[in-house]
Design a binder for these strands. Structure first.
Length: 576
RNA sequence: GCGCCCGUAGCUCAGUUGGAUAGAGCGGCAGGCUUCGAACCUGAAGGUCGGGGGUUCAAGUCCCUCCGGGCGCGCCA
């Protein structure tokens, strides 16, 4: 849309330069602004304002000069004017919009190809398998998943990966915790370790271990038992995580094991490489990475003085591994509590000889969970938390996903369980889905009336019949879809799509209430059917990109909520 | 103490990278189903964009400062 106008305006500027009036040495970046108010047209340019100082002329004079030199051979403009302090306001002609709609309907311009087949990796979730997923993880996972879907949609080859910290201290702690609970089952009461995981799921794992292996670990060497139980617990929990995410419609191309990374010797190799680059030094018996030299504010340890690798060492090796796999972009979706980690990881990427710009870290803010307005404390150690699974069971995948996507990743999310449950039948997601179902229903009605709406061909439809302002607005909105996709991808902000869908659905609902689609006027009916079909297509596409269902009919409402029409309850007429 | 994020209508949040008269949803108020699905729609009400400075033709948006909330600042994981 902007491209069409950019050409025209560029021509006008060139012409103005030749014919005098303005001194132009170079073409400025042509900035277009979608006007805030409809009266200002479809698109506005502020060139004149930007230029005023350099040209030593008033913005309005510049704007008027440009306008006089503007040619529009193809008639894409309906109106162009100078307004306000010197804006150039443009309105596209209906024909222009009909043509855009046609392009979409004929599938010619539906496919964006920003990626050109480049490989992108989205790493997300990557929760340590020491406990079940909670709500915050869910938000990270959904945002990561939708980003992946968006990248695929615009022409990238996407890989979704889950990095598993399946080795190290915390896995040991998991084993230890299970070991204690296991011994408790046999009456061996020791004081539960401070660093242990106190959640009930640990007890469940202990019970399962008992069922499966009986008294085996009582007689076994303590360290051996812990090590075994650690592995057993980690695998079980990772399996559960995988199931939970699966229920959310999230599937990974691969799970990348830290333990295997270490066993393959990649961490050593990476360390050796960094050493050869002079990026490491010894201090106090530990090995340090010169992060400060690469923009971080502290140097970071990679090997502790006791000889253990730090997790950071693995992370560097992991990212080197990613980069060697040829990804053109690495997207990491993290909880915002890891934000302090970004600069050190970017520093390491630079030290490895890559451009740190390859890595994009999307930070997802915390989810503030409440139940009826009362905060719910969460933490693996305390063992008190609401799992993602519970939320899924209570509000359903679609509602939960939409909740997670309705806010900028940067913003804290208030998630009230009571509210989410109570409103599950009037959740915003239903608003969008309802629009989709409503349109399906109209087409069904059309079939019953013997109108062939399903095989409508654009060529046979008189789009000029769509002359109402609401209809023009809907067309514009539908055309805007690709732009929204592009921005969502470019800015790594999937919430934009969610908002867009709400707006489009709203426009449709209003239109529906005001104007009938099906009427005796056949050509009008056909034009309107075409219009709402394009709305439906965009909504369906959008919902799928968000990982949501696009139902053709909504489930019937639950009895207590359903409107029984004229029947009134005996004395409870006031009950609402 | 230092760093990052947030502060916009009663509540929850958008605001297209600096544009013109700041927008939705929910809640409250007043209305609309014999017609394509009322999980919808219409109308009115609701604002010192946390406060104060600054940058410029133009600031919710950029800079400084203060206030308030969250999260980070290990040879933790």
């Amino acid at each position: 849309m902007k491209d069409y106008l950019r050409d025209l305006l560029a021509q006008a500027i060139k012409k103005t330069a030749k014919g005098g009036g303005l001194e132009i040495t170079e073409l400025p970046p042509l900035l277009f602004v979608p006007p805030r108010h409809k009266e200002f047209g479809d698109l506005a340019s502020n060139v004149a304002l930007v230029w005023a100082k350099k040209q030593k002329k008033s913005p309005r004079v510049i704007a008027e000069t440009l306008l006089r030199n503007l040619e529009d051979p193809e008639g894409i403009l309906e109106h162009a004017e100078v307004a306000g302090p010197g804006f150039l306001n443009f309105s596209f002609s209906p024909k222009f919009w009909y043509d855009r709609l046609k392009e979409i309907e004929m599938g010619r311009k539906s496919g964006l190809d920003l990626g050109r087949g480049d490989k992108v990796q989205v790493e997300f979730a990557s929760v340590n398998p020491t406990g079940p997923l909670h709500v915050g993880h869910g938000r990270v996972a959904v945002i990561g998943d939708v980003l992946a879907r968006l990248f695929e949609e615009v022409g990238y080859r996407v890989e979704r990966e889950y990095y598993v910290n399946d080795t190290g201290k915390q896995m040991e702690n998991l084993g230890l915790s299970i070991y204690y609970r296991y011994r408790e089952l046999f009456g061996e009461k020791d004081e539960f370790p401070q660093e242990g995981y106190a959640g009930d799921y640990v007890k469940e794992l202990a019970v399962k271990a008992k069922d499966r292996w009986g008294r085996k670990f009582l007689s076994e060497e303590r360290e051996t038992a812990i090590q075994f139980l650690s592995r057993y617990g980690g695998e079980a929990l990772l399996g559960a995580i995988r199931d939970d995410l699966g229920e959310f419609g999230i599937v990974f191309n691969g799970y990348f094991s830290e333990e295997e990374l270490r066993n393959r010797g990649e961490v050593e190799q990476t360390i050796n490489f960094l050493r050869s680059q002079g990026a490491l030094y010894d201090h106090d018996g530990a090995l340090w990475f010169r992060a400060v030299s690469y923009g971080d504010d502290k140097d970071r340890a990679v090997i502790k003085s006791n000889g253990d690798l730090t997790y950071f060492a693995s992370d560097i090796a992991y990212h080197q591994n990613k980069l060697q796999r040829g990804f053109k972009k690495l997207i990491n979706v993290w909880g915002a509590d890891h934000h302090g980690y970004v600069s050190r990881l970017k520093a390491s990427i630079q030290a490895l000889g890559y451009d740190s710009q390859l890595l994009h870290v999307v930070l997802v803010q915390m989810v503030h969970l409440t139940r009826g307005g009362v905060p719910v404390r969460m933490g693996k150690r305390t063992g008190e938390f609401v799992t993602l699974r519970e939320v899924l069971e209570e509000v359903g995948s679609d509602a939960a996903r939409f909740f997670f996507l309705m806010r900028k990743a940067d913003s804290h999310l208030d998630f009230d369980l009571e509210l989410a449950k109570k409103e599950s039948s009037e959740n915003p997601v239903f608003y969008v889905q309802y629009a989709h179902a409503r349109i399906a229903s109209i087409f069904e009605q059309a079939r019953r009336s013997g109108i062939d709406g399903d095989n409508l061909q654009v060529a046979e439809v008189q789009l000029e019949r769509l002359a109402l302002s609401e209809e023009m607005e809907i067309i514009k909105k539908v055309v805007q879809f690709t732009e929204v996709l592009e921005e969502s991808v470019k800015e790594l902000e999937p919430h934009r799509l969610a908002f867009y869908l709400l707006e489009l659905a709203g426009q449709f609902h209003r239109y529906y209430n005001k104007s009938r689609v099906l009427s005796d006027d056949m050509s009008l009916t056909r034009a309107r059917l075409l219009l709402i079909r394009s709305v439906q297509k965009v909504i369906r596409k959008g919902l799928h990109l968000l990982g949501l269902q696009a139902p053709s009919r909504m489930a019937t409402r639950s009895p207590q909520e359903s409107d029984q029409g004229g029947t009134s309850s005996p004395e409870g007429a006031s009950a609402s």
